[in-house]
Write a protein that binds this DNA or RNA. Sequence first.
DNA 1: AGCCAGGACAAGT
DNA 2: ACTTGTCATGGC
Length: 267
Amino acid sequence: MEKDRIILPVSGFSLADTLDCGQCFRWEEQEDHSFQAVVGKQMARVFQQGDDLIVESKDADEEFWKNYFDLNTDYGMIQEKLSFNKPLRTAMEYTSGIRILNQEPWETLCSFIISQNNNIPRIKGIISRLCENFGEELGEGGYTFPTAERMAELSLEELAPLRAGFRGKYLLDAARKVVSGEVDFARIRESSLEEGQEELRKIYGVGAKVADCVLLFGFHKLDAFPIDTWIKKVLAEYYPNGFPKRAKKYAGVAQQYLFHYIRYYKD
DNA sequence: AGCCAGGACAAGT
DNA sequence: ACTTGTCATGGC
């Protein structure tokens, strides 16, 4: 199999933190510390060497990967705007290499439906089985993420091998409403945070937190602020008077810094 | 072994 | 408007 290799210049970037901060679930770290995943219809391998990010994939497209890793966004500026706040400064000392990926909305929606009341290792397992059972096989042991069209024709019994528990019915409702156009991704992309939340919450099993994760990680709305169990603890401990309005425009980025910091670096 | 996990929903105050 | 029980499953 012929592979392209592209080299993307990066600055202040951490591939490991970006891929292991809970925003994505399919990248697998290899023995040599590179990461592999199927993105779109291609298996990709990525690794970082200092200020070079190397991507290996068939028909690798430079613009696609620049956008995927969000290399066109000025994170130095964002971090400057968040640095007025002490807890954020502390978190950013450890997590400033994180970038908010530009992931497929449908995959992101399913992933965060699966994430609810669940732990990350098991989330990864369910998503992996979803792809193996209903995605397209690429060879090299890789499978694409199944389309909404494919999933809309499945029954709850056919979803049983996923062992997704009560989340199975949520996935089917999501697929049905996305395929019918009742939930319109194109409209969400153009709309405000509030309208996007409203649109996504039409899906049975999608509440405020999952909707915000999809808007942040799938639609790159950096003002979306998902509040999960970890962030609840952060808010109670460091922000008893509420999260500062000054951080509102990039609250999602701030959220991700805090989330990754308390889970991996604190103590 | 038992607690809990990147929640949502319905039913109860 | 808040609080609580329930929902499948399995990682640790």
